[in-house]
Write a protein that binds this DNA or RNA. Structure first.
Lengths: 113, 113
DNA sequence: TTTCTTAGGCAGAAAATACTGCATACTTGT
DNA sequence: ACAAGTATGCAGTATTTTCTGCCTAAGAAA
């Protein structure tokens, strides 16, 4: 997603669409979710934990999340490279919403079965 | 979004991505949000309340939300047509998550200013 | 010695999603 | 008499988003 955002109205005062401009896209919420469950994670741990994601999309989504102040990226100056990703305080504040969504999803799953 | 869903893995047990398959896409959450604020709404009320949405997208998203049991559609047999949309019980259960997301968005807005 | 892991990366292609422009038939409003 | 409102709709187009296939250099594991 470019930095123009999904919802483009300048006069849009809606806080929900404002939020969705930061966390929309296919992979951002799953990344935040997995980090909320596991604390600090490395690149390939994230890749293995998120079913279906590609290198390119993981890299791009991590960059966007870091730029938006939702995750921290800490690189240790080592070879081979060792990088750790974790949620910022701001990112942590998304957890209640994600838990509520996941709970709802669980309900939907039991309805569908 | 087709009925195959955004996240395709059969073996995906993640309740969050399961939920996102129902409420993903650009316009579904804003529709649910506006209905949660206003109770029952008509088609053009929804259209006027959601900045940037087109007829086609409103129609399609309403159909999908109805199919997924998230909103109710009640048609009065009148001319011109009068249709009212509202959240189902299941749809109402999304409200806490949306409120938490909107609250987070509000925080992001005050950070960005 | 060979294979695997680490954390990425690109440009163009593919896939997914949203939109356009005009349309409907009847009542209500101006 | 004319315009506006009502709740939609399509097929092709446009836009947005994601993906592919192969690649890197050095250490660790087999």
């Amino acid at each position: 997603m470019n930095n123009q955002g999904l919802y483009k109205s300048k006069f849009d005062n809606c806080p929900l669409t404002f939020a969705l401009n930061f966390i929309g896209g296919k992979w951002r919420l799953p990344i935040i979710w997995v980090l909320s469950k596991n604390g600090t994670m490395r690149y390939n741990e994230l890749k293995r934990s998120i079913d279906g994601i590609t290198n390119m999309m993981l890299t791009q989504s991590l960059k966007e999340l870091e730029l938006n102040g939702i995750i921290n990226r800490k690189q240790f100056m080592e070879v081979p490279p060792r990088v750790k990703y974790s949620l910022t305080d701001n990112g942590e504040e998304l957890i209640p919403a994600l838990k509520a969504l996941a709970n709802w999803g669980k309900n939907m799953k039991s309805i569908a079965e």
